[in-house]
C-alpha cells in the first residue's frame, strides 16, 4: 500500500492539486478564470461519462448494474446517520449543522470519483463502466436522510418540488448520464471518433482542474478553518475511511471487480461540495455553510485525493483478494 500511496502522492494530478492548495494558502494571486474552470469540469464529466458508456457497450450489463446502484443508494441513505451520530459525539456542532454536514458525507464528490478512476486505471484495474451511473444515483438520497434528521430539530425547510428538480437535474448529473448514454449508444466506434479529444488530453485537463480545486480548497481552509473545532476536523478524516470501508465491503458483497470495488469505496468515502451545498442553502439556510463546505472541500477532499485513494484501492484489493 505504501508503494501505491507514494505513486499517488507523486502523480501529476496530486502535485497539481498541491500546487493550487499551497498557492492559495500562501495568498498568491494565482487563479483559474471561472469560465475556464467550468469548461474543464464539463470536459471531465463528459469524458468520464462517455468512456463509462463505451465500457458498458463493450461488456454489457447484467444484474450487477442494479445491485451496484442499489448498494450505492443504500449507502447514500445510511451514511448520513453514521455521520450525524459521530458529529454529535465528537464535536460541539449543533444538530442542524450536524445534519447538513451529514448530507455531504452521504452524497458524493464527482471530482474525487474522476480522480479515483484515473488512479484505479493507472494501477492496472478496469472498473465496471456503469460505476458512472452509480455515482449519479448516489447524489440525492443523502439529502433526504439529512432533511429527516434536521426535521427533528424543527428547523428544516419544506421540501418544495422545485428543489428536487434542481437536485435530480443539476448540470453535473445531466451531463454525466447524457454522456454515458451517448457512449453506450455509439460504443467503441463512437469513442474512436472522439478519442483525440476525450482520451489523450484527459489527464492533462484533470491536472489543470485539480490545480483550480486546490486553489478553491486552500481559500476555503483559509477562510473557514476558524469555524471548525478539533472534533469536526477529526470527523472529516475518519468519516471517509468509514464510508470507504462500507463501499469496499458492499462492492465485494455484490461481486464487483477489484476496480469496481475501489470506485464504490471512493464514492462512499467522498463528500459532496457541489450538489448538496446548493440543496442545503435552500432547505436548511440556518445551517452554517462555512462548516460544511470547509469540512468536505477543505479537509476531506484533499485527504481523499492524497492519502485516501491509495487506501481505498488497498481496501478493494484486500476484500477481493486481487
Amino acid at each position: 500500500m505504501l508503494d501505491l500511496a507514494a505513486a499517488n502522492l507523486l502523480s501529476p494530478i496530486v502535485l497539481s492539486f498541491a500546487l493550487g492548495l499551497i498557492a492559495a494558502l500562501a495568498r498568491s494571486d494565482l487563479s483559474v478564470p471561472e469560465a475556464v474552470a467550468k469548461g474543464l469540469s464539463i470536459y471531465l464529466l463528459f469524458a468520464i461519462g462517455f468512456k463509462g458508456g463505451v465500457a458498458v457497450a463493450e461488456h454489457g450489463v447484467g444484474l450487477s448494474l442494479g445491485l451496484a446502484i442499489g448498494a450505492g443508494v443504500a449507502m447514500s441513505f445510511v451514511l448520513p446517520f453514521i455521520a450525524f451520530g459521530l458529529l454529535r459525539g465528537m464535536s460541539r456542532m449543533g444538530p442542524l449543522d450536524a445534519a447538513a454536514v451529514a448530507a455531504h458525507y452521504g452524497s458524493i464528490s464527482i471530482v474525487t470519483f474522476v480522480a479515483g478512476t484515473s488512479v484505479v486505471e493507472a494501477a492496472g484495474f478496469k472498473p465496471e463502466g456503469f460505476m458512472v451511473a452509480v455515482a449519479a444515483a448516489m447524489e440525492a438520497p443523502a439529502i433526504l436522510s439529512a432533511l429527516w434528521l434536521a426535521a427533528r430539530t424543527g428547523k428544516a425547510g419544506g421540501v418544495e418540488p422545485g428543489l428536487w428538480r434542481e437536485i435530480m437535474l443539476n448540470g453535473s448529473i445531466v451531463l454525466l448520464i447524457g454522456a454515458f448514454a451517448i457512449g453506450w449508444i455509439t460504443g467503441p466506434k463512437g469513442l474512436s471518433e472522439v478519442a483525440p479529444l476525450l482520451v489523450a488530453p484527459f489527464k492533462g485537463v484533470l491536472c489543470l482542474f485539480l490545480l483550480d480545486m486546490g486553489l478553491v480548497a486552500g481559500r476555503g481552509l483559509r477562510g473557514g478553518g476558524k469555524v471548525l473545532d478539533r472534533g469536526a476536523i477529526v470527523f472529516a478524516l475518519v468519516m471517509p475511511l468509514i464510508g470507504g470501508a462500507a463501499g469496499a465491503i458492499l462492492g465485494a458483497g455484490i461481486g464487483l471487480s477489484t476496480g469496481g470495488i475501489a470506485l464504490l469505496a471512493i464514492l462512499g468515502a467522498s463528500g459532496s461540495y457541489i450538489a448538496v451545498p446548493a440543496a442545503m442553502r435552500v432547505a436548511m439556510p440556518e445551517a452554517n455553510p462555512s462548516i460544511y463546505l470547509t469540512l468536505s472541500l477543505g479537509v476531506t477532499f484533499p485527504f481523499n485525493l492524497t492519502i485516501g485513494l491509495p487506501i481505498y484501492l488497498w481496501m478493494a484489493q484486500t476484500v477481493s483478494g486481487g
Partner: peptide
C-alpha cells in the same frame, strides 16, 4: 468576508 473567487458552485 466573502468572495466569488474560489466558490466551487452556485451554492456559494
Amino acid at each position: 468576508a466573502w468572495s466569488r473567487e474560489g466558490q466551487v458552485s452556485r451554492a456559494g
